[in-house]
Simulated assay, not measured.
Amino acid sequence: MHTPIHAPTHAPVNAPADAPAEAAAPPGSLAALTAEPGTDPLPRIRASLRDGVLAVSLAGEFDHYTAAPLRGLLADGAARGARRLVLDTARVTFCDSALLHPLDRWVREGGQVELAATSRAVRLLLSVAARAPRDLCLRSRFSG
Rank of each mutant, 00 (worst) to 15 (best):
V128R: 15
M1L: 11
M1S: 13
L138W: 05
D88G: 08
Q112L: 13
E36D: 14
T34S: 09
E114Y: 01
H64M: 11
A35E: 13
A7K: 14
S57H: 07
L73M: 10
D40T: 11
R134A: 15
T66G: 03
A17V: 12
D40M: 03
R50G: 01
T93C: 14
A82Q: 03
S140H: 02
P37S: 10
P102K: 00
A32E: 15
L99R: 07
C95V: 00
A90C: 10
V53G: 05
R80H: 13
L70T: 03
D18C: 00
L138R: 12
H2R: 14
A31L: 09
A117F: 01
A117R: 11
S127G: 15
L124D: 08
A132R: 15
T3C: 01
L87W: 08
H64R: 14
A23T: 08
A130F: 01
D18M: 03
P37W: 07
R108Y: 04
L100I: 13
P69F: 10
G72F: 06
P27C: 00
W106P: 00
F142C: 04
E114D: 11
R134G: 05
V56F: 05
C137G: 11
T39V: 09
F62E: 11
A129D: 12
I45Y: 04
A7Y: 06
R131G: 03
L74R: 09
L103C: 04
D51P: 00
D76N: 08
L54P: 01
A68Q: 13
S48H: 09
T118E: 12
